[in-house]
Design a protein around this nucleic acid. Structure first.
Length: 566
DNA sequence: GCCGTTTTCGGCCCGACTGTTTTCAGTCG
């Protein structure tokens, strides 16, 4: 079929992990359809686990197969799934999925995705009303056919219509910086609610994932009702999806879903751990608990009926023999083994930074840009600024670089900050203006061919699409001997973590910077950069601007010094 | 369908809330 042809085309691209993603997609769809069939839940989970593991796998399945590797070594993959992986990589599909498609339409997945409609109801809708698509679902609801079905009613029907109209959780993921605005506002409201002792945001927000799907609030309180009422009654709540004595779920007008859980003080640590996730991390920790005869849930750690830990997160980790794991590391990507061995990294903290990095575009007035950035830097106790002057690609007008660097230096001095100044060229540019600067930087918008390394390298937006969609390693390699500059730009946050991870693996130091956005926001941009560095397991030692100015100056100094460290 | 410091069989996380029920199934996180 046409479908198969399209798939094989995808798989001929062996330079990336297309095969992994294809296999993960097939397994995920099989899991969905088995769920509709009402299969054994553990069998379904096996497919779902495998889909999750393979989607995040660092190695190329097609290459592993070609090399004759044993796929059952992979987590969640046994003899059966190993065989199916081979089948999918070879043919693009899998007989089992084809069989399922003879019974269930592929689009039933969309119906299942409607909030309030799961696999069982999707099956009922399909079998009783012939609903195969979202359009069909909407038509059935509008004709009031759904309320006639057993297990449904007028309320369910209305909820389905609301969901289809996009009124209920949109599923859109919000950039971290944007979620922070909503989060902080609600946090203030919850903390002021009667009876509330403590309120925090857990979930992927706390793990500093670049985008978050919802906000998870956790509250300890003397009385439950205060916090629940405060959330449900918040001014920008569009819909209340659930409201009980210990939890509530609402959708804000922005489409952001917000969950609130209220727990007792003795359960706070266990609940915080539980609701911070990630899911994969939690399952792995619980598995450790089971091996020690412990049951771990959001209320605590229990041996038989007796609570043995749970007041703090640290007590939960300690109960299963782990060091405290910072939230940004909780992705089940090796942090549990590291914590068990006492070998966790100590991720960089914002307070360890001594300097910020400011970008001055060719059209900017350097004095004004640097003055704004310097004031913000001074306010957070920084000591110096790395000032990067962009050199335009081709410009006929002579630019007075001495005047520009002098203006920047003066602006720094006014705020009692030390400046370190450099020129930034596109990596393809051959000539550099004749002016004394402390370092030379390169902006990299495509894979580098140039042999001469700049001291500081910055991957600009767009490079990711062009050359590093899946692996920024080749870009980062260009910074060996120098450093990689990473700006906490909210719009490009998802690109940062892979870049930072690649830098760590390559042993390339990084500079974390705000970029110096005029009009404020430096502080949060710097914090965003730090949060992604933490997710990438970077320690202070790997962050150049956590070191004293003299060391940064020496590290970035052009040519000779840079070459000394091979 | 996977997995094993107790296991090659018998486990696999589980509690809260809703809507439809008359004791609970389905969904969600």
């Amino acid at each position: 079929m046409a479908r198969a042809a399209a798939k094989s085309h995808v798989l001929t691209d062996s330079s990336d992990r297309a095969a992994n993603l294809r296999v993960a997609a097939v397994f995920a769809e099989i899991a969905d359809l088995l769920e509709v069939e009402g299969e054994n839940p553990f069998r379904i989970r096996a497919y779902r686990n495998a889909a999750h593991e393979l989607g995040a796998l660092g190695r190329d399945l097609a290459a592993m197969l070609a090399a004759g590797d044993d796929l059952t070594e992979l987590p969640g993959v046994g003899d059966d799934l190993a065989g199916k992986i081979g089948e999918i990589v070879d043919t693009g599909s899998c007989a089992m999925l084809d069989d399922l498609h003879r019974v269930w339409p592929a689009t039933i997945h969309d119906v299942m995705g409607v909030p309030g409609v799961g696999p069982k109801r999707a099956r009922t809708l399909f079998e009783q009303l012939g609903v195969r698509t979202l359009a069909g679902l909407q038509a059935a609801a509008q004709q009031q056919k759904i309320r006639e079905l057993t297990g449904f009613g007028a309320t369910s029907e209305r909820n389905i219509l609301d969901a289809l109209a996009g009124l209920l959780g949109t599923g859109r993921r919000l950039p971290l910086a944007e979620a922070r605005v909503h989060g902080e506002r609600l946090l203030t409201r919850l903390r002021a609610a009667p009876g509330v002792i403590e309120a925090v945001i857990a979930g992927s927000y706390r793990r500093a994932l670049a985008t978050v799907g919802d906000l998870d609030f956790l509250v300890t309180a003397r009385s439950h009702n205060g916090a629940i009422a405060a959330l449900v009654g918040a001014p920008d709540v569009a819909h209340v999806l659930a409201e009980g004595p210990t939890r509530a779920t609402v959708v804000l007008r922005s489409g952001l879903q917000v969950d609130l859980r209220v727990v007792g003080r003795d359960s706070f640590g266990a609940a915080l751990h539980y609701f911070t996730g990630s899911k994969a991390h939690n399952i792995a920790v619980r598995r450790l608990g089971v091996a020690r005869g412990l049951k771990i849930n959001e209320y605590g750690v229990f041996r038989d009926e007796r609570r043995v830990a749970g007041r703090t997160e640290a007590s939960v980790f300690a109960a299963v023999g782990l060091q405290f794991i910072p939230p940004e590391l909780r992705e089940n990507r090796g942090e549990i083994a590291a914590a068990a061995a006492g070998e966790l990294p100590q991720p960089i903290e914002a307070r360890q930074l001594r300097g910020d990095l400011v970008l001055v575009a060719a059209g900017d007035e350097p004095g004004a840009v640097v003055a704004a950035a310097a004031a913000a830097a001074r306010a957070r106790g920084l000591e110096y600024l790395l000032i990067v002057h962009a050199v335009p690609g081709r410009s006929r007008a002579a630019i007075d670089w001495d005047a520009r660097t002098r203006a920047a230096a003066d602006a720094c001095a006014e705020h009692e900050l030390a400046p370190l100044q450099g020129l930034e060229l596109d990596i393809a540019q051959k000539t550099c203006p004749e002016v004394h600067v402390d370092f030379v930087a390169a902006r990299l918008s495509h894979a580098p061919r140039a042999a001469s390394h700049p001291a500081l390298l910055r991957i600009v937006a767009g490079a990711r699409e062009a050359d590093a969609a899946r692996d920024p390693t080749p870009l980062v390699q260009a910074a060996v001997g120098g450093a990689l500059a990473v700006i906490g730009d909210p719009a490009h946050l998802p690109e940062l973590e892979p870049q930072l991870r690649a830098a760590r693996v390559a042993g390339v130091p990084v500079v974390l910077g705000s970029g110096g956005e005029p009009g404020g926001g430096q502080a949060s941009r710097l914090d965003l950069a730090v949060s992604q560095a933490r997710r990438a397991w970077l320690e202070a030692e790997a962050v150049l601007n956590s070191r004293p100015l003299a060391e940064v100056r020496e590290h970035l100094a052009p040519r000779r010094q840079a070459r000394r460290r091979s």
